[in-house]
Design a protein around this nucleic acid. Structure first.
Lengths: 179, 179
DNA sequence: CGTCGATGAGTTCGCTCTTGTTCATTTCTT
DNA sequence: AAGAAATGAACAAGAGCGAACTCATCGACG
């Protein structure tokens, strides 16, 4: 499905009788998303997904023809994370979206799962505590994990395996102020 | 930026004076995309990106709390691949989009990269020659690509690892091209 | 305009998958 | 019709997904 076909489909929706308007709005939307993401802002479309900017560390790649290795410097790329509704729809292969009380069914399922996991909580707590003591991870307290968490984490993991170096209190890292 | 803010931004664009219309079109768009992707159809928005359905093989995951392993059966999820324009914009951190002769700039950059690769020709000589003679044939010198055995390959790999980990080193893990 | 309810984020860790290169071919856009 | 953008292929390694669960928050509805 190319852009023009999408326009047609959109125009077919009730409330959208004008095709050129649909086109204009679509363009504007894409434009806005690009702008927002470029500025590092997340664009959240509840039930659909989130567009965000993501940092990509430098890496080694290779020339497909020669096979020789080439350096690739770090960069930032746009990314999209599908929302719950979208994922569910695609997975089930069902119709687009019928916001209804079907939620009830889902809820039941979740609840059931909960029960099973519940007893494990105790163990979980302990594990967390142990980890904190043993690992001594760098404290990222206030700062959101957003930063270079990924990279740091990787390095840290390796390092930890060998030895525990830095001593930094692992702040309860909660979702204090992040969103 | 949440959905309502996006609507506002869109409404600010010329040609889109009606905010409620913007809302309607946006909803319709998301709806359409979901539907198309659900049906396994790709939605190509040139310069922006492509929405597509992607198969996800079964895997082993773990409960973040307890750490216990849980089986996850295969599923299909929506995915988004940023287009050239979008990526470039985000990477440069510049304005949204000004489809113009900027292409020239890009071209220059590409050319520069080319130079670096040029010397490597020797290694690729054979491949190049082949191409020149019978490009259509596309003689792929090295290993050949297997059919679409992604899943099969994956399973096999796992099995091998379980039985003889070290020995598996040479498994010709071929990856299917499905994009 | 306010409340109820659904939704997203954050967490851990293994394992799959994506990313990135070049260059030619191909499709779609303008 | 002209040209820009997308696709594909081989390969390696880093990157991110995903499950279960909780809560703050967004959003839909009256």
């Amino acid at each position: 499905m190319n852009k023009s076909e999408l326009i047609d489909a959109i125009a077919a929706h009730p409330g959208v009788t004008d095709k050129k308007t649909a086109s204009a709005v679509l363009e504007a939307t894409l434009s806005e998303i690009q702008g927002a993401v470029t500025k590092g802002e997340k664009v959240s479309l509840t039930g659909f997904g989130v567009f965000e900017r993501r940092a990509r560390a430098a890496r080694m790649a290779r020339n497909p023809r020669t096979g020789e290795a080439v350096k690739v410097k770090k960069t930032t790329v746009p990314a999209f994370r599908p929302g719950a509704g979208f994922k569910e729809t695609v997975a089930s292969g069902k119709a687009p979206a019928a916001p209804a009380k079907k939620a009830a069914a889902k809820k039941t399922a979740t609840a059931a799962t909960k029960k099973a996991a519940a007893p494990a909580k105790k163990a979980a707590t302990k594990a967390t505590a142990t980890k904190a003591t043993a690992k001594k991870t760098a404290a990222k307290a206030p700062a959101k994990k957003a930063a270079k968490k990924t990279v740091a984490a990787t390095v840290k993991k390796t390092a930890t395996k060998a030895t525990a170096k830095k001593t930094a209190a692992k702040a309860p890292a909660k979702r204090a102020a992040k969103r």
